[in-house]
Design a binder for these strands. Structure first.
Lengths: 327, 327
DNA sequence: CTGAAAGCGCTTACAG
DNA sequence: CTGAAAGCGCTTACAG
């Protein structure tokens, strides 16, 4: 910057202004600065800028996984909205491990991000402590069960699962199994399970057909189906904690030559892109993953602007998409 | 830091050392510093550290897309390897748009990352210029066609596609179509197309059955199959630029009741997780996406350590995985 | 093993 | 509209 200032014959302060608030600099000076900067290939050092202004225009996102998940939508919504305002995304994956999450938050805090977007509202105690002590905007996403550290955006997994369970029951299925997600401690999945079981119970059906699985992917659907069938040979429908598992069930049905939805009804959770494509179409809960990201971005931006001291909690809801996998 | 120093009764310099190079501080002092830091909830400010040391321990990754792609593996390899060394990942998605890529590089350079990982080796001229001028380690990934800005890790898309094409021909298919990827200018996909067509040509088959599509996802497979069938009703095999499209073709075959591999052989590119799960199994090119990420991380780390002024170009190869979608 | 000085490249806050 | 001074919170390089 000093070089640019010298070449343009102005003070460094003026160079700074020409970049940050061009309107406060005369047109002639602005042009000289721009020419000098271009000639020297000057790229302002944001690290120095951040230190001086104690604002980083950097947001950290901490997600359990990127693979086959709705978090991609959230991340995209977040980064698209943020990029428009000149913010950048620091990303960490934790593999559903609270210890990893705590390590990630500690690591990231040293960079003084303006905001942190967390997945879920269950954290290692140190996360809550660190974040409360730090002066960052934090948004917890995908879970609406407080208490929250600061702000939150999500939807009710239990309500969504309850609605899905009722739909399955309403279609006349009577022996309905549930395939769980591997990480048993994650409340979002506990809520999904509870919602489904509540729907079965209120219809007077057996809520006990629940299969735990070890695999987050398609293979979990296959092994889950196997264990449900060993509990109940007359199983007539399966609800899965995620679409990926449901797709695994559909594939297994195809392999066995079982007609869906007649021999077995199948429903998933997430409405991933593939749900609309796989024959005969997968009935699923559509969550607004992208919307969660956009909303999180907006909460953080609004907080930056200084206004809003409040800590909103946003429920973005869900929607059930009915397709051929249920009769 | 000043607060910690005061509370521990030492100079700030000693606090700095206690954190960065604990071995250079006496045990007693180290403990006092640690206690003071814990009591105050002190988190070292890396922004200040970066400015003073002109090293950021931050790496920027610029990818076309996160959705349904092998870049996830690369990203995971990169971030896993980097995190072990205390580095963090700044992520940007460009949507296959060179202008977006240039904007991302410009934006990211201001943070003075220690390294930049780019996807492909085709860039807006300004990208090359900016990166050459800056003092960053850069690794171009997924493409082995130079000239490179600095280092590179990838494999030959043409060789992989040629091998896949030869396998299809070797299985006795005679009317083989190719479904292209939407972004026509991307060399990786041009190379895949060329490889397949070369295999057809050398077998004396018609290399002209190529369908362009508008959709990056499963739907592209469906529409691609439609247009190939309108060119050649006797089409007996389809090779797709990506597994996602190939899965789309398999789904469409299921919908039509066409037996795979007998009515139609299908092959993909990428060996995504789903390729092994979808019945009857998708024959595909397995690329080492994760390995590319790990290797990129290692090249950058080695460059940081000061050694290696060289600019290696690594070929990580590929492998063809044969499954039921080809007879 | 420990510390005082200088500086990294910006921005804030104050003058003019 | 423009500038000189001070400072952001660390690390480098030098002393002792």
């Amino acid at each position: 910057m000093a070089d640019v200032a010298r070449r343009a014959g102005v003070s460094p302060m003026t160079v700074s202004r020409a970049f940050k608030t061009p309107a406060t600099v005369s047109a002639a000076v602005r042009q000289r600065v721009e020419e000098a900067a271009a000639a020297l290939g000057y790229v302002p050092n944001l690290v120095a800028g951040n230190l001086a202004s104690s604002r980083s225009r950097m947001i950290a996102a901490v997600v359990p996984t990127l693979a086959n998940s709705n978090f991609l939508g959230t991340l995209k919504g977040l980064s698209d909205r943020l990029r428009q305002e000149g913010y950048q995304l620091l990303l960490t994956e934790t593999g559903y491990d609270p210890g990893e999450e705590a390590a990630a938050v500690a690591a990231v805090l040293g960079r003084r991000p303006d905001g942190i977007v967390l997945t879920g509202a269950q954290h290692h105690p140190s996360v809550t402590a660190m974040l409360r002590a730090a002066q960052v905007a934090v948004v917890e996403t995908w879970d609406l069960h407080g208490p929250f550290i600061d702000m939150a955006v999500g939807f009710s997994h239990r309500a969504a699962a309850l609605a899905l369970g009722r739909m399955v029951v309403g279609r006349g299925y009577r022996r309905v199994g549930y395939i769980d997600f591997p990480h048993a401690g994650v409340r979002r999945f506990q809520e999904r399970r509870r919602g489904v079981r509540a729907a079965l119970r209120e219809a007077g059906l057996d809520p006990g057909l629940v299969a735990g699985v070890a695999d987050e992917g398609y293979a979990g659907g296959r092994s889950g189906l196997d264990s449900l069938l060993s509990m109940a040979g007359d199983l007539d429908a399966v609800i899965c904690a995620t679409d990926v598992q449901a797709i695994g069930v559909l594939f297994e049905c195809a392999r066995r030559g079982w007609p869906v939805p007649d021999r077995l009804g199948v429903a998933g959770f997430g409405d991933y892109e593939i749900a609309a494509e796989v024959p005969p179409g997968l009935t699923s809960v559509r969550t607004n993953g992208r919307g969660i990201g956009v909303a999180a971005a907006e909460l953080i931006l609004r907080r930056q602007e200084g206004g809003m001291a409040a800590a909103p909690v946003l429920d973005l809801g869900f929607e059930i998409v009915s397709r051929g996998s249920l009769r």
